[in-house]
């Protein structure tokens, strides 16, 4: 049984390796062999298939969050008067 498991992991990857490749493919190109192994693994493992969906959604959320936050004119949650004065003092020393 253990033997069969290790052979399956070599052929089809373990979940730990598969999720690693799911992240890798978002940033780098996978080798053809890794692509096939990942395709087969995600085809039979519902959890990693789900992980892939979540990971891609997270990527889109982070990009969106970055854009919306940068362009929104959100005021600071605290008074920055002291900070402004500190910066002006340091500018005056220049």
């Amino acid at each position: 049984m253990k033997m069969l498991k290790s052979v399956l992991h070599i052929l089809l990857l373990s979940c730990s390796k598969a999720t690693g490749l799911i992240e890798k493919e978002l940033y780098f190109r996978l080798s053809p062999i890794d692509k096939i192994r990942l395709f087969m693994h995600a085809g039979i493992c519902g959890f990693c298939h789900r992980y892939r969906k979540h990971s891609r959604l997270l990527d889109r959320l982070m990009i969106e969050l970055h854009h919306t936050h940068q362009h929104a004119q959100e005021p600071a949650e605290q008074d920055v008067t002291a900070l402004k004065q500190r910066i002006i003092d340091s500018l005056e020393k220049k």
């Binding site: 936050h69 940068q70 004119q73 959100e74 005021p75 600071a76 949650e77 920055v80 900070l83 402004k84 910066i87 002006i88 500018l91 005056e92 220049k94």
Partner: peptide, 18 residues
């Protein structure tokens, strides 16, 4: 220097928030 001090008043808050 004067211009940048004006910008401090205008933008320091949103820059700090970011």
């Amino acid at each position: 220097n004067t211009i940048i001090q004006e910008w401090v008043q205008l933008y320091a808050e949103s820059m700090f928030a970011w």
